[in-house]
Design a protein around this nucleic acid. Structure first.
Lengths: 197, 197
DNA sequence: TCTGATAATGAGTAATCATTCATTAAATGA
DNA sequence: TCATTTAATGAATGATTACTCATTATCAGA
């Protein structure tokens, strides 16, 4: 079996996992469920993944890779204008999650299953993502458009926190608004602050 | 058995649950573990709680009740000065979580176990807490010290998002800083914004 | 002290599921 | 076509654990 077909099957299993886990939650989803939806036998799963938890982590890795690739591109493109770059990253974050509710459910809920898993995830691609945001903030400070002496990583975490809460709220909400429609409001608050100046 | 003693035993079980669940995660913690630490028999648990999930939800309810009571007091006290009130709420949030790492672990990680549980929790005391923050924001807008025309509930969620991320970061971090020490930085960013004015 | 009621016990039950591995199928290439 | 390697299968296993309930202990009032 060539590498492409192998990769395609792995992808199919991951796609199946996203749908099943979003629907029933990680712990209620059995390996059989995932195998069934992917159209393979239970045992086959173990030819592609070390175990159930490895599937969850792989879903995360794959999604974060996409996030990072796109964010990276935005940062590279928009070197001259930190505010605009930040706006584009915020928009990207909310757009990508808003486009796939199942993925959003997994991101906002299922990944946080145990401290152990969360630690695993936080140490990997998550740091890169935060570092990218921090880089933009630093650039803005260097250019004098953002306030100096605010720790860039702190701001990055704050930005992430707001986005995360918006996404969770959207996932839990019954209402049918587009998540990305919040982008501007988020950025305006973040950049301009709450206080009347 | 009088009501006080009954309540005390219930509290003991909840305390035991906090310690056990923070240490091993909700799913790895058995009902036996909790019973053992609380010094009661397994079956006794079911005289006080409907089942395992009910313990988790009750831990949340109890903690949120404390949060809400304190926050309520702050809001009532500080009617005249919305900025100061907001600062006190932020400080309260980070202080209460920062004082009890086990509780913080449960808040930041274990409560988010399933969409189902998260929905349960979000609908209850969580809304009250957000509404309290929103109330302060609205007051500020009415007094002309906060920007008008920003949806107060939106701001409340943003505030919560930042606090949540700070708390998660603290829980996952190896470093030993005091969580509450972030209060001022959080508020400064929130009130003043990132952009140079 | 006696008695009915209330509270607590903990061994047993029944169900669940991740993982394994002996077997079968498919692919490869000579 | 046949032999060999690689991939896939799915029934069986073994371990786990939430919850029940028949039994025992404790308590409160007379």
């Amino acid at each position: 079996m060539n590498a492409d077909r192998k990769e395609a099957k792995r992808e199919r299993i991951l796609d199946a996992a996203v749908r099943e886990i979003a629907g029933r939650g990680y712990h209620r989803t059995t390996v059989s469920d995932i195998a069934g939806r992917a159209g393979v036998a239970d045992g086959t799963i173990y030819l592609y993944f070390k175990g159930k938890e490895d599937i969850l982590v792989s879903v995360f890795e794959r999604a974060m890779q996409r996030f990072n690739k796109e964010a990276q591109r935005i940062v590279e493109d928009g070197a001259g204008n930190p505010e605009h770059t930040l706006r584009r990253i915020v928009s990207l974050h909310l757009t990508l999650l808003g486009e796939d509710r199942d993925l959003a459910v997994i991101f906002q809920v299922e990944f946080r299953h145990t401290l152990h898993v969360l630690e695993l995830l936080s140490r990997s691609r998550m740091r890169d993502y935060l570092a990218l945001i921090a880089q933009v903030v630093e650039e803005g400070e260097a250019q004098g458009v953002f306030k100096p002496d605010v720790d860039a990583m702190f701001v990055a975490k704050a930005v992430f926190g707001i986005l995360d809460e918006m996404a969770t709220d959207w996932v839990l909400s019954r209402k049918n608004f587009r998540l990305a429609s919040r982008s501007d409001t988020v950025c305006d608050l973040l950049l301009g602050g709450l206080r009347v100046s």
